[in-house]
């Protein structure tokens, strides 16, 4: 446990971008709130204050979520390659840290630590924006942003999304780590050409597209259906919009997320199995590799 703590610290020391990138995004959003056209926003205030606050919260959250997934993917793809290219792998290997512990620490960084750093900075940003906007507008719009109920809902949603995405993207993370431990160069190409080749081969030789569906579902459309009762509804309800055909109790996050469904869905477990296998291969590759 103590070793894992130091391994995580090491990663954070090494890549300042882990917190610099979200901090910059946060700073830009706060600047926008400071100098942007608040009056445009204000014209709509009275009927849907709650909605407006929710949209702001959610929009800034979406920006962070996008940046977080991109950065995490890049981090996982780069981490085992960069230690080989700068030769430092030999230094780390001369310390009593197993390859398993090392690879798992990188996995933990990409799937949980980086997301939670983004989450913390996103939170700080929304609170700052809420403060700035309410001061500038001298209005109650800020109050909806400060609305503790909605804010807490958002926290629950973030934690749920981070936790379920970590499981959902386990096979993707495993694949990126494997490529990172194996490829000598052209990491990006290696990360997507073999899957594309396999999809193409399946289509040509078997005339089927099972793999293509599995990959696209894993990367794009599968997650929301797997982890939420109604994903679209979640977004709108959380943002406070009345949704057609629904009583739209604004932001009742508990009724929207579907942890039991997620934990019992077949796709979740297939993903875990594939992920574990890929991570195992990545660990084996790391134990045999020295500097490039």
């Amino acid at each position: 446990m103590k070793r894992h703590f130091w391994l995580i610290r090491r990663e954070i020391w090494e890549s300042r971008a882990i917190w610099v990138v979200p901090a910059l995004i946060g700073a830009l959003l706060v600047l926008a709130a400071l100098f942007g056209h608040v009056d445009v926003v204000l014209s709509n205030v009275s009927p849907q204050r709650g909605a407006l606050g929710g949209v702001l919260l959610f929009a800034s959250g979406a920006v962070f979520l996008l940046a977080m997934t991109t950065y995490s993917a890049w981090y996982l793809l780069d981490c085992l390659h960069s230690e080989r290219s700068d030769h430092s792998i030999l230094f780390w290997k001369c310390l009593p840290i197993s390859d398993t512990a090392t690879v798992l620490s990188k996995l933990l960084m990409g799937l949980l630590v980086i997301p939670f750093i983004y989450f913390a900075i996103a939170d700080l940003t929304t609170l700052t924006i809420a403060f700035v906007v309410s001061v500038r507008a001298r209005s109650w719009i800020g109050a909806s942003l400060w609305n503790p109920g909605q804010w807490l809902q958002l926290q629950v949603l973030w934690v749920y999304v981070i936790a379920t995405l970590a499981v959902w993207f386990l096979p993707v993370a495993g694949w990126l780590l494997l490529v990172s431990a194996w490829a000598r160069r052209a990491l990006t190409l290696w990360s997507f050409l073999p899957p594309l080749g396999a999809i193409w081969a399946e289509r040509v030789f078997f005339g089927t597209s099972v793999l293509a569906h599995a990959v696209t579902s894993r990367l794009f459309m599968g997650y929301p259906g797997d982890a939420f009762h109604d994903f679209q509804g979640s977004i709108f309800a959380l943002a406070g919009f009345p949704v057609a055909g629904r009583s739209a109790a604004p932001g009742d996050v508990w009724s929207l997320i579907d942890p039991v469904g997620f934990a019992t869905h077949r796709a979740t477990w297939i993903g875990i199995a594939v992920g574990v296998a890929l991570i195992f291969v990545a660990i084996r590759l790391r134990s045999r590799s020295v500097e490039l």
Binding site: R3, F5, H87, S88, I89, L90, L95, P96
Partner: peptide, 27 residues
């Protein structure tokens, strides 16, 4: 105890943190 050569030392690491880290992971 072994470190192959100075080229394997991670350049981004500060000396004091190198000590902290090794102390943290090496009994």
């Amino acid at each position: 105890s072994f470190i192959p050569d100075i080229d394997v030392l991670p350049g981004w690491l500060r000396v004091d943190r190198a000590l902290d880290f090794v102390a943290g992971v090496h009994p």
